[in-house]
């Protein structure tokens, strides 16, 4: 498992989720803190492409051996892609939470919502 890190180029939601916004499309995942609290991830239950997600609400589940956690959407929009490689390799969520462990890509319905998220420094201050 990688060491704790909270990249500067991401936005953070208080429920330990991150978003990376590029050209109106956001990529979501869970933070290093979240995956560490969960332990070894054994299963990612993905949403369907085309379904909508709402900021602050659950859009997927991650499971460790002895726990299930809802994954909270940091922003609102429609899912355009899910990370299908997690089906066979959920450990990517532990090993590389900001890279190979990404979960979904979402077209944002209200990009201005991003202003409500935290930067890295603020998020780290909440931990």
């Amino acid at each position: 498992m990688a060491d704790a890190s909270y990249p500067d180029d991401l936005l953070y939601h208080p429920d330990h989720d991150w978003a990376r916004i590029q050209d109106g499309v956001a990529t979501f995942g869970i933070t290093w803190f979240a995956q560490d609290a969960l332990g070894e991830v054994v299963f990612f239950d993905p949403p369907e492409v085309g379904s909508s997600v709402t900021a602050g609400e659950s859009y997927a589940e991650v499971e460790s051996v002895k726990a299930v956690s809802d994954v909270i959407a940091p922003l609102t929009g429609e899912i355009v892609e899910v990370n299908t490689t997690l089906a066979d390799a959920p450990e990517a969520i532990n090993d590389d939470p900001y890279g190979a462990g990404w979960m979904v890509r979402v077209t944002l319905s209200d990009p201005a919502q991003a202003d409500g998220l935290m930067d890295s420094e603020t998020y780290v201050g909440t931990l």
Binding site: F43, E63, S64, V65, K66, A67, V68
Partner: peptide, 12 residues
């Protein structure tokens, strides 16, 4: 696959 079960997932 114990996350299916009542002692972990409780009401779900």
């Amino acid at each position: 696959l114990q996350t299916r079960e009542q002692h972990i997932r409780r009401e779900k």
